[in-house]
């Protein structure tokens, strides 16, 4: 029997998508989603490679997608002070995500995202995400709840409250 199962898996199952589902189930913003829901997101997203120092998006640009880092490092920078100096506010690595506010609404980006090393990033578009949650609202509830938790923890962190 185990041999038949192994043969079935080898013939019919896609190891690449299984690995991707496993990887994305560890991403905080997708916490609580089942494997099939993550699979639906994976089949709908696009992934691309960025070279080191390539700008992924700029501050004030209209946000329309969520970015999840599969490999490499990304810096989130913001211009501040009188001289508008660029300041690194976060360094993100594999499994981290950024630009999540775009899933809620197409609003201007609050910071610039730049690849620090060559990296592979997967992108979920607001348009396709909206269409997906219209058909399956459960996915929307889970993801939006996660975004709310992330935003709350950021606010609490900023204000120093517990």
């Amino acid at each position: 029997m185990p041999d038949i199962k192994r043969l079935f898996t080898k013939l019919f199952m896609d190891q690449d998508i299984k690995q991707k589902i496993e990887f994305f189930s560890q991403v905080t913003i997708l916490n609580g989603l089942g494997n099939f829901d993550i699979g639906k997101l994976v089949t709908d997203m696009n992934c691309r490679a960025y070279d080191a120092q390539e700008v992924i998006y700029g501050e004030q640009e209209l946000g329309k997608a969520l970015f999840i880092i599969m490999s490499g490092e990304v810096a989130i920078t913001r211009k501040s002070g009188l001289l508008k100096e660029e300041k690194v506010i976060a360094r993100l690595k594999s499994g981290d995500f950024f630009g999540e506010m775009a899933l809620l609404e197409a609003i201007p980006r609050a910071a610039t995202a730049k690849a620090l090393t060559s990296c592979k990033i997967c992108i979920i578009y607001k348009a396709s995400f909206d269409s997906m949650i219209a058909k399956d609202p459960k996915i929307g509830i889970v993801v939006f709840k996660n975004i709310a938790v992330i935003l709350a923890s950021r606010l609490l962190g900023k204000s120093g409250g517990g």
Binding site: I56, L62, G63, I123, S131
Partner: peptide, 19 residues
């Protein structure tokens, strides 16, 4: 890379409308 988000979100929206 700089235009990825804009251009591909347009393609994504067209895709949704057609689908």
């Amino acid at each position: 890379s700089r235009h990825t988000e804009t251009i591909l979100s347009i393609i994504s929206e067209i895709n949704q409308v057609l689908r």
